[in-house]
């Protein structure tokens, strides 16, 4: 049986913490280890921050969607924005690559999402938006 939740929130930096807490609370039913919870919080934080600073270029009137679903021990996390989109996804995934180096962005967001989760998929269209889909299987039931 699949379990699912969905939230929509404003593109404000305060909501980075909100999204982390919501995702962590949702996966609590999977009895995750402390390390697994930290992995999820960090990956969610990276994806939501990207939607805010890159997708919506800090426009707080825009909305971000987060959907999490659980099937057996596997959770799928989706973060969606309807922002500017990514021109070159392969490039964007490279460690230390950032289009906003002048703002001291580390360029490590996608690298962390990729290493902390079991799977990372990026769908993006210029002018349409970006959807990040991450999946992680939790070790104990």
């Amino acid at each position: 049986m699949m379990e699912m939740m969905c939230v929509e929130f404003e593109s404000k930096s305060e909501n980075e913490a909100f999204a982390r807490v919501v995702a962590a609370a949702f996966i609590a039913r999977l009895n995750p280890t402390l390390d697994e919870v930290e992995d999820v919080k960090m990956a969610i934080s990276e994806a939501v921050t990207n939607a805010i600073v890159h997708g919506y270029e800090n426009d707080p009137s825009k909305k971000i969607f987060m959907r999490c679903s659980i099937e057996n021990q596997t959770c799928q996390f989706r973060i969606m924005d309807q922002g500017v989109g990514i021109a070159d996804i392969e490039r964007a995934k490279e460690p230390l690559y950032s289009t906003k180096k002048d703002e001291e962005r580390a360029g490590m967001g996608f690298t962390f999402m990729d290493t902390l989760m079991d799977d990372l998929q990026i769908y993006s269209q210029l002018g349409e938006g970006t959807t990040i889909i991450m999946t992680k299987t939790f070790s104990r039931g």
Binding site: R20, E38, K41, M42, S45, E46, T49, E103, E104, R105, A106, G107, M108, G109, F112
Partner: peptide, 16 residues
């Protein structure tokens, strides 16, 4: 208690 890549950005800023 928690840090993501923004913390790394802060260190890089200080380093520069």
């Amino acid at each position: 208690q928690f840090m993501d890549s923004a913390g790394i950005g802060l260190i890089m800023h200080g380093y520069q």
